[in-house]
Design a binder for these strands. Structure first.
Lengths: 359, 359
DNA sequence: GTGAAAGCGCTAACAG
DNA sequence: CTGTTAGCGCTTTCAC
């Protein structure tokens, strides 16, 4: 559109136009003010004018290559599911201003996870936020990232066994502990927990179970505790599977000689499925069964859902809070900060609505 | 971890190790088989072995700079909301194997949109998928992208006024047209449409209104058509606002001397809010009011929601279908294909559930 | 088959 | 204050 027909205008083009050297243009454009060196206002102005005129656009590839740095961060997700958008928004709120995210998704495939990590390394990202699979096969690449390439990395939701990397997550143990306690306060004694374990490398499920069991023991209810319903390792993201799990959970519940009066499940989406299944089976909630879960998805607050659930304290949904926390830590690390060695556990609190009632 | 303490290993390192030139290593590593030139199997093997041993990782910045190409695509979103994760998954299904996405979000801020586009250009992405704001202020940069930089770009959901760029979207006109018709088939005559217009540059709302009005006219119901409830330009993403809109919609409905028997709204999330508000006001759905919407979010199929809605034909949710379609077109364009000049409109169909009933 | 050399566009000392 | 000189790590003719 401009007079020049040149495809892409470079620093050199500007240099020629203005009659200075490329180096000077480089300095002028980046506003080399603060440092020791400064350019004459006249030159700077001339350069800027020419840049505008020629439609100059810095080539970040060249810039990054030369400066050995980049304004890109890598975001590695295990999958794109409901909640991912919220997590990404959290990350974006904190880091979006300065950095752009390279989004990598490995769909719970450890080999793909490695490949995606290679891409992030290859692009020399300034930092990484990752939901690792935890598969020990991939330990080496996490070591490479943080040790060989010195790329700051923050894990979210779960740790990588074998290497001490900072983790930011909701407090899983407290989630089931407090939820169970909240149910107890409503008079429930026969409380069951049902959760899904994604993979044996991820400790989330274990922490949930521990929190539940601790609360039951504390209340002297170990006799009432038939243990958590153990669900298989599945990709529950796909609706059909979850529906099957909900049916499974209710079958187990119904088969009990002494049916539980309250059921605590893994996450809100699973709770929706259970609610759905209860409706089909004519099980009244909360009269016949109190239902509680973890996550407080936005839907749960709708009056026709009104699900009792655990939420992360703060003004945002759980996933976003985790995204914010993760990004904040990464921001600090990229700025040269040191990690104090402690995982960051976001505090949770119960949010009791109408799917739970007194016994 | 390896014997060498070198921070980062390059082609040259391998070359020295093996005793060949960097150029040869470059060819060997990329498997220069098909072309005219071929390397002796021995060399290739030696190079590969050395690469493995030294832990070589290609520097994509350098590679892209030198080859003037990149395996990165830009994904520009107006905001991260429920559905974004689904769209991204669709894009990832198609392009995820070869490309990595640079994610840019501009939060409906035209200036930010421009800045993010600059970033994508600066990184010399191989292609762009964008949900543009439509703001004419940004026309130039879209021209620059596709004309000056020859970066293939596919718009999703809406077009950019002033420039002919390929658009992939659900068929908005047909959505309300068919929905209205479906309601008519249930015997409804007093049907209202309520939608939200994000910005005056985006034609979605207009198409929705046109589809609705066409269906009403076709059925000779223009007298029953009081026009669509026009809602302001708002960031309805934030729950409080939507709740306010739902109240607004129902206020308008209630104030009508002859109340509509059926209400058609913009999207499922808004429908949930209306459902919520109906429940609070004691309006029975569908006895007092039939409710239908557009989108068929996963949540809508749950038995305790069971929302009648319009869906995109196919096996995936609307957003994912659009993501897939957008990515497929971009893939073709990046492969050198030509756009035939027609927008791609994904066909839609009604999915009648229990929030709608016979009059 | 393989190597030498030039260059992608920019940065970063170090001179002048 | 500004220009020169080297690269950053890889690709890509074009000779040998």
């Amino acid at each position: 559109m401009t007079a020049e027909g040149k495809m892409t205008v470079t620093l050199k083009d500007i240099a020629e136009e203005v009659g200075v050297s490329p180096a000077t243009v480089s300095l002028a454009i980046r506003g080399r003010k603060a440092g020791k060196k400064s350019l004459s206002p006249g030159t700077v102005e001339a350069v800027l004018k020419a840049a505008k005129k020629l439609g100059y656009r810095p080539n970040m590839l060249a810039k990054n290559l030369a400066s050995q740095s980049s304004m890109t961060i890598g975001v590695l997700l295990s999958s794109l599911v409901f909640g991912s958008e919220s997590f990404l928004e959290g990350v974006n709120m904190v880091l979006g201003g300065e950095f752009t995210s390279l989004l990598s998704v490995y769909n719970r495939d450890a080999a793909l996870e490695r490949a995606e990590m290679e891409v992030l390394i290859g692009n020399r990202v300034a930092g990484i936020v990752a939901a690792c699979s935890g598969d020990p096969e991939n330990l080496q690449i996490y070591k490479d990232v943080s040790q060989t390439y010195n790329i700051p990395i923050v894990l979210y939701s779960r740790r990588m066994p074998g290497i001490k990397l900072p983790v930011v997550r909701a407090d899983h143990f407290e989630s089931t502990f407090k939820a169970t306690r909240a149910l107890q306060e409503l008079g429930h004694k026969r409380i069951r927990y049902a959760g899904i374990s994604f993979s044996k490398w991820i400790e989330t499920h274990k922490l949930y179970v521990e929190g539940y069991e601790a609360a039951m023991r504390d209340a002297g209810l170990e006799n009432e505790m038939r243990g958590a319903v153990k669900l298989g390792v599945k990709d529950w993201v796909k609706a059909p599977n979850v529906i099957a799990e909900a049916a499974n959970i209710l079958d187990t519940w119904a088969a009990d000689r002494e049916r539980a009066t309250a059921l605590l499940v893994d996450n809100d989406w699973l709770a929706y499925q259970v609610l759905d299944e209860c409706r089909r089976r004519g099980i009244r909630v909360p009269q016949d069964l109190s239902l509680m879960s973890i996550g407080d998805y936005r839907f749960s607050a709708l009056s026709f859902v009104d699900l009792s659930t655990m939420r992360v304290k703060g003004e945002h949904p759980m996933e976003m809070m985790v995204g914010i926390g993760t990004a904040e830590l990464l921001r600090d690390l990229m700025a040269g900060g040191k990690w104090d060695g402690n995982d960051i556990l976001l505090p949770v609190e119960p949010c009791m609505r109408t799917t739970t009632g007194r016994v």
